[in-house]
């Protein structure tokens, strides 16, 4: 038991250490990375759900250029967001977390929690074993033989 504990402690420490390195060594987001992130965050208003990063439409290019100019000028993410929504309404690619739209964030969590409780219930439930007749065993065995032939 002790050797198992030591081995798994080693694995755990290694995983935590490597994750720490991956976060600490990441550094500050560069200007290019920030522009890329913002490009990925806004919808091309005429492209049926494509991001401005992915769209080749001229309006998408205009928004991309606008973001680049704003980032270079030192605008914050919130300022850029407000400016883009003022100029191109409906270009948010991520639904807002308020009003009716908040449901799209809340419902999956509710479903996951209810599902997890359901699974826990099923796993924890105890049902008395059912007696199985030899005829039933023969039936299933015959069916298996038939399909594995």
């Amino acid at each position: 038991m002790t050797s198992r504990l030591v081995r798994w402690t080693g694995v755990f420490v290694a995983v935590v250490g490597l994750l720490a390195v991956s976060v600490v060594d990441r550094g500050v987001e560069t200007e290019d990375q920030r522009i890329q992130r913002l490009h990925d965050s806004y919808a091309c208003p005429v492209c049926d759900g494509q991001s401005v990063a992915d769209s080749n439409a001229s309006v998408a290019e205009a928004i991309r250029t606008f973001i680049e100019v704003e980032v270079v000028a030192g605008a914050s993410d919130d300022q850029i967001r407000d400016d883009i929504l003022a100029a191109w309404p409906g270009s948010l690619l991520n639904p807002p977390g308020e009003g009716f739209a908040a449901l799209v964030w809340v419902l999956p969590v509710v479903v996951a929690v209810v599902g997890a409780v359901g699974v826990a219930f099923v796993v924890g439930r105890r049902v008395e074993a059912t007696t199985v007749s030899s005829a039933d065993r023969d039936l299933v065995e015959a069916a298996r033989r038939g399909t594995e032939r």
Binding site: D40, A43, G49, L93, N94, F100
Partner: peptide, 13 residues
């Protein structure tokens, strides 16, 4: 259908 709003739900979500 709910309030007539136009939402886009894309890759970030």
């Amino acid at each position: 259908l709910w309030d007539g709003s136009r939402l886009t739900i894309g890759s970030p979500y």
